[in-house]
């Protein structure tokens, strides 16, 4: 019963890089005596990024994120981070600084993005309103391919149309234009630097992910909160 699909074309990462896309990686500068300790952290959307940002705040400031309004913890360039974090722009001499990247099983991640962003019982209606038309347009599918949600305005997708749309987008070599939640992970953290050059590449499910994050950012791990629930 196996379905054989025509092979997808080989995506030209070099052409994508020339578009000027900047990976969402973050340079963390922590005072260390008279100097500053510099590290790089990067994690994709749908890879536990919100939880990791909260942990990063606790590591840097010694307390949980105290705010309940905008700007959210995910806005790492907001004033609430006291200028400790900036978007990484320089990738030369990358290996001189410790670095931390989080990956997620690609199939699990895409199905998680489906459940929270585009399906007809979505968790995030504002994102669905924005993302479903984007996916249809990139795939070249008509709005008639989508469904009408019962829980809000706009359009939603069933699993088959969602995967068909993503497949068509990859067929057209347009995956570099996908929203961060669907963008292949190798087009973000690893666009400029392969996984082998990062100090730590881990998953959110790793028991010592937070210890590793502490170790990279502070140069030491307090050994507390090492497990990540």
């Amino acid at each position: 019963d196996k379905v054989i699909l025509p092979p997808l074309p080989h995506f030209k990462v070099s052409v994508f890089k020339s578009t000027g896309f900047k990976p969402k990686a973050w340079t963390v500068k922590v005072p260390n005596g008279n100097q500053k300790r510099e590290s790089v952290v990067c994690y994709c959307a749908k890879c536990g990024s919100t939880s990791l940002d909260s942990e990063l705040y606790r590591i840097l400031f010694g307390k949980p994120w105290p705010y309940s309004d905008w700007p959210w913890v995910q806005n790492l360039d907001s004033k609430r981070w006291k200028g400790l974090i900036t978007q990484t722009t320089k990738w030369k001499n990358f290996e001189q600084s410790p670095s931390f990247a989080v990956v997620r099983d690609p199939k699990e991640r895409l199905l998680s993005a489906f459940r929270s962003k585009v399906r007809c019982q979505s968790n995030n209606l504002a994102d669905r309103k924005r993302l479903v038309p984007q996916l249809l347009k990139l795939a070249g599918l008509s709005k008639e391919s989508a469904s009408k949600p019962l829980d809000g305005p706009g359009l939603c997708l069933n699993e088959t149309i969602y995967l068909q749309a993503l497949f068509m987008i990859h067929e057209k070599e347009l995956q570099g234009r996908l929203d961060a939640h669907f963008l292949p992970q190798h087009l973000n953290c690893f666009l400029n630097v392969p996984p082998s050059k990062w100090s730590i590449v881990t998953t959110i499910g790793s028991a010592k992910a937070i210890c590793d994050l502490e170790l990279v950012v502070l140069g030491k791990s307090k050994g507390e909160s090492c497990s990540f629930a």
């Binding site: 995506f11 997620r104 590449v201």
Partner: peptide, 25 residues
Amino acid sequence: TLSTIDEARLDAITREEYSIFGSYL
């Protein structure tokens, strides 16, 4: 559970990611 065509599409669109960092999962 995904249908066979859905599974095949998911396999195809994630193949490159697995080849690049699958060993870290």
